[in-house]
């Protein structure tokens, strides 16, 4: 177990465009941290620099307070699971899992026991003699995890390990992954573009965009208190409504935007006139599309209503909707950063 730190780390592939642009991060021992961002945001490059697979253009990587920037991946005592799993296709599951042990010159006698331990940890002990191509996607993913675990590294690096699984499998795999990490307590860095995974897995989430860190925080913090319009617009499904209100941008989550009947009104609520244009039924929820009227002109927004809340309005009609005052977020028009609330 170890801490991981990056100091002003950058990666330039061309002179103009930085893939990773001066990131400072500190990851304490045993934390499960998620790098989240759209594709091309630099999250994988950052991970690969921590792994030692890419050399930073500037800055340093520290593992356990030791600068490892110049070290080869194998000298960093890390393990990595790839999106494609990168199993060695010509080797049996046993040999795949044993490979890191053999490469590290473990005593021959130790190897079978350790392989079995890792395989049992992921419930794949009965596949040890098979070749990767004879396994299902989920089984392969477990083999990849077992191979990463088997030599008990200081840090786990996981690069979108669940994205090749189907949706159902992904949910259970997520759960198992987290339980497993809690059990062994190894510092884990997890890269994903999927906010559900990020929310569900991470002790903390690092939101990245265009090579820069936009926000670091616990999943709920990041969700509830987005640091800027990017985070606000990236997290949540559907994301936060962002509307132009003069010098500021006003943001609120669709689930906080409710018909006036559904909420007890008081001083802490702000009222809006909402013209409904479309309703989408999603089973447990409804998405209500429409236009915000009055004040500083119209704006398109949506509301997300649980199916338990009645919708007292027909298509094309206007209705009063409210938002709790503390659920309203304000952002600077120029920088996109959070600002203090302004009077509406």
């Amino acid at each position: 177990m170890a801490t991981v730190e990056t100091r002003k780390i950058s990666k330039f592939y061309t002179h103009e465009q930085a893939a990773v642009d001066g990131i400072d991060l500190f990851i304490p021992e045993g934390e499960f941290i998620v790098f989240l961002g759209p594709s091309g945001c630099g999250k994988t490059t950052l991970l690969r620099m921590i792994a030692g697979l890419e050399h930073p253009t500037a800055g340093d990587v520290l593992i356990d307070d030791r600068v490892v920037t110049a070290l080869a991946p194998r000298d960093r005592n890390i393990a990595m699971v790839f999106q494609s799993y990168a199993l060695y296709p010509h080797m049996s599951v046993f040999d795949n899992i044993a490979f890191p042990l053999r490469a590290r010159q473990f005593a021959k006698a130790e190897i079978p026991g350790k392989v079995r331990w890792a395989a049992e940890m992921f419930g794949i002990a009965r596949f040890l003699e098979r070749k990767p191509r004879e396994l299902s996607g989920g089984e392969r993913q477990r083999v990849a995890l077992a191979r990463a675990l088997v030599r008990e590294p200081q840090v786990f690096l996981l690069d979108e390990p669940l994205s090749n699984l189907d949706a159902k499998l992904r949910t259970s795999a997520r759960d198992e992954l987290q339980q497993f990490q809690r059990r062994i307590g190894t510092t884990t860095i997890y890269v994903t573009h999927d906010q559900v995974e990020a929310m569900g897995l991470g002790d903390r989430v690092v939101v990245l965009s265009q090579g820069k860190v936009r926000q670091v925080g616990k999943p709920l913090e990041v969700y509830d208190e987005p640091a800027d319009t990017f985070v606000a617009g990236f997290l949540g499904s559907p994301p936060m409504n962002l509307i132009d209100r003069g010098s500021a941008i006003l943001g609120f989550r669709p689930e906080h935007f409710l018909p006036i009947e559904a909420r007890e009104t008081g001083n802490d609520a702000v009222r809006f006139t909402f013209r409904v244009t479309r309703v989408e039924y999603l089973g447990a929820d409804r998405l209500v599309y429409g236009m915000l009227e009055g004040g500083a002109g119209e704006a398109k927004v949506l509301s997300r209503l649980p199916s338990t809340v009645p919708l007292p309005v027909q298509l094309g009609e206007r209705h009063e909707f409210v938002i709790g005052r503390r659920d309203l977020k304000f952002f600077d028009r120029q920088t996109g950063l959070r600002t203090a609330p302004i009077p509406l």
């Binding site: 690969r48 792994a51 030692g52 697979l53 080869a72 991946p73 194998r74 890390i78 393990a79 990595m80 790839f82 999106q83 494609s84 799993y85 990168a86 199993l87 060695y88 296709p89 010509h90 490979f99 890191p100 053999r102 490469a103 590290r104 191979r147």
Partner: peptide, 27 residues
């Protein structure tokens, strides 16, 4: 050979000969 396989071998700690003979050659 997918890049990931090379990366995995590097991370797993394979040296030059192990990578050549046990990973790349068979593939």
């Amino acid at each position: 050979i997918p890049k990931d396989i090379h990366d995995a071998a590097a991370i797993d700690g394979a040296g030059f000969w192990r990578r050549e003979l046990q990973i790349i050659l068979p593939l």
